[in-house]
Design a protein around this nucleic acid. Structure first.
Lengths: 188, 188
DNA sequence: AACTGTTTGTTGAAAATCCAACACGGTGTC
DNA sequence: GACACCGTGTTGGATTTTCAACAAACAGTT
């Protein structure tokens, strides 16, 4: 599954990714050139093309990596003495805080529009698996509702990021959870 | 004179140097192994040997680089409205401050004993060239005196570093200069 | 429309690095 | 002393990156 990477490959991809992230903090992906990324990363441009098709490809690989990593984190340790539904939300927020800069640039308006979509899907999948299992309703309806609810939650998170994460993850998790709960109460 | 370095060489040498400096901040050069440096720098050990003979060699290259760089700096721009003899000392201190961490580790006791010697020579050469030219005395005596004076000055700088550079470079330059002047007044 | 400058994607050969393996010397342990 | 362990320096072949060059697409200027 995961190819063996020798040191050089690892390094090359690392600095190219860092380079793109840096540039994404300044301008949207469409204004960024491959040449620019390579100069910043101090990597020969021809090397770039042995790893990625273009800078959009590189961006999607970055996003892929983050979502994979986040997914792993979400499925890891749980705080034992906390209500299950709050835990989930809290862990998501913690992960966001850990990768503050990354999320700030990738969720920024127009910087990388696809990232938000990925986050939606990941978060939704996770929630669908872990939310209290008492949904005896039609799958379709539940799915649509979760889209509705999670879209709202994600945008609250974006707001939170925009306000430089003033509230603690725990605090925010409680609040967002109330929103989500209220949304799901539609089913009852 | 200076060979052309392709990106890879530059990078390799850069991280190896950084690695050694990091380790030197923790223990003396004699306790450091080549293997250790390579692991920290994430560079294959065989590559190390294509650049340096051993870690002492690497250290000397580092020192060489610093002294060259410092020499260049010392011969650069002068503050126009300041007395010549103070300027010199001040520039030296400024350079030290710019490379604070480097000097702190390299001048640390037992970390790298040769560095001090290099600094002595460099500083002395610079002073001999720039000090007021009214020395109609025998070269030999002036040389010995300068050794005496500069050795004192360097150890004052070491003290200054050890005290985390509380005083400003300008302040220190004035003070050290007074010491030096007093030393040279021996000749009069 | 011709011109200028810039980015793109691709190529081939040179250069550098990686990796695994080796024999060797030192150091400490039983 | 025999033993295991670890760092050393070196080698050869595989892999990767670099560099310089190229034709092509594109944008902006006059």
């Amino acid at each position: 599954m995961s190819e063996k990477l020798d040191r050089r490959k690892k390094y090359t991809r690392k600095v190219l990714k860092e380079g793109l992230i840096t540039l994404l903090a300044q301008k949207p992906i469409s204004d960024i050139t491959v040449k620019e990324i390579c100069e910043l990363a101090d990597i020969n441009r021809s090397t770039f093309y042995t790893h990625y098709n273009d800078h959009y490809d590189l961006l999607s690989k970055i996003e892929e990596e983050i979502t994979e990593d986040m997914n792993e984190y979400l499925n890891s340790y749980n705080y034992p003495a906390e209500e299950e539904s709050i835990q989930m939300t809290r862990k998501i927020l913690e992960y966001v805080i850990e990768n503050k800069f990354m999320f700030q640039t990738l969720l920024k308006k127009d910087a990388a529009p696809t990232f938000e979509k990925r986050m939606m899907e990941l978060t939704r999948g996770f929630m669908m698996n872990n939310w209290r299992g008492d949904n005896h309703l039609g799958k379709a309806e539940v799915n649509y509702l979760s889209t509705f609810v999670i879209s709202g939650a994600i945008h609250v998170i974006k707001d939170w990021i925009a306000h430089d994460m003033d509230q603690s993850p725990k605090e925010m998790a409680l609040m967002i959870n109330n929103f989500i709960n209220y949304g799901f109460s539609y089913l009852e």
